[in-house]
Design a protein around this nucleic acid. Structure first.
Lengths: 206, 206
DNA sequence: GTAGCATTCAAACGCCCGTTTTACCTACGA
DNA sequence: TCGTAGGTAAAACGGGCGTTTGAATGCTAC
């Protein structure tokens, strides 16, 4: 009889997310994960087969939702009659912001995501490309329609820069310290505002 | 008698840089490092004391030079009569670009640097802040003078975004693939051009 | 009740880790 | 020539790693 509300699998995923964010994929051991999740060591290999596959499941759990939210937010932004660049950028950025503010580990996940970029692991990159590829394509098409004078390749470069800055900002890499009296949520929301303003101007560059 | 041109310390630093870039700090073992450097396992602890300290020395070797080049490039840019925002951004970005193109592992180092950001390790962040802090301050002052109407805090945010996008771009996180027929150098130089144009517009945003 | 299945558990497997020890080499000043 | 210091070498240290095993447990359907 478990004393917690969540299943063994869910507790493992949650603990793994936290520890991968803090210690990295190689740095966090399954013994640490299972201890934090309060489950038996063997449960990881029983439920997930291997550590490698556990890592993939940590991603899958969050990415499907994030992608869906982004596409949904984009369609809603485009529906509005006077939607501008800032609205479209918001559709890309705010779902990531919401995730980072999510109770239950979303804040950890954006750091895990940043680690995945840093890992430069081909299998992981393919996994992310498979999951993110169509989203980037959709946003590219929307931005291309909104910025008809901008060269297509140039737009790809700029969207890649936006994605990089977003990853960096959401994972809290930056040197800017949160001031006392400013909540984590306020800090991230301001970060998103600054990012949107900056990115909109960058995209409009001649 | 060594068969190589470089000292044991230098060979360890070089091999460590490559392997940390590829496998991460936790993922790369001293046995792999010393094998790649063609030195005895015990040499790391003899010359550097510990793995932790080896990591710090890998950073120190490159950061001093990078910082000096950036400051030097900034002063030269400011000396020119009609220096603009793009020149100042170039002074920040091009030394990192040069490093990434450097023979002998600079390309690996920018990925190591990106990993350091992702690590979120407090000791490492302090180390980087101590080494980078005055450089960021100098650039901030120069940009502040060039953009007198921009709020100081707003400028800090934007420079942080630029640093994030640069880290992301130089470490080759992006989804943009290098086309066949385009050399690594050309790819990175184009990346820097796009980044400068984007960042200049972002900094000029109202 | 009990058979059958999914899950949990403690223990152990073999392997690799960072570090330390101890011996050995080599060069050079006394 | 010898003593000494700086560097290299092989081997071993204790410990943590991912994974596997086989028995114990809980749960469901008959």
């Amino acid at each position: 009889m478990n004393s917690q509300h969540f299943s063994t699998k869910e507790r493992i995923l949650g603990a793994a997310e936290q520890l991968f964010a803090r210690l990295g994929f190689a740095g966090a051991s399954l013994r640490q994960v299972t201890a934090a999740a309060n489950v038996n060591l063997a449960a990881v290999n029983y439920h997930f087969g291997s550590k490698e596959n556990l890592i993939n499941e940590v991603f899958r759990r969050r990415l499907d939702e994030l992608n869906a939210h982004r596409l949904q937010a984009l369609e809603e932004a485009l529906k509005r009659p006077a939607s501008d660049l800032e609205d479209m950028l918001g559709a890309f950025i705010h779902p990531a912001l919401d995730l980072s503010l999510d109770r239950g580990g979303g804040g950890a996940f954006v750091r895990v995501l940043a680690r995945a970029y840093a890992e430069h692991n081909d299998a992981l990159r393919k996994f992310l490309s498979d999951n993110y590829g169509h989203v980037m394509k959709r946003f590219h098409a929307a931005f291309a329609q909104r910025l008809p004078d901008l060269d297509k390749e140039e737009l790809y470069w700029r969207l890649d820069i936006v994605a990089g800055a977003l990853t960096y900002a959401m994972a809290d890499f930056g040197v800017i310290k949160r001031k006392t009296g400013v909540t984590e949520q306020q800090h991230r929301e301001r970060s998103a505002e600054h990012l949107i303003r900056f990115a909109a101007a960058g995209l409009r560059a001649p």
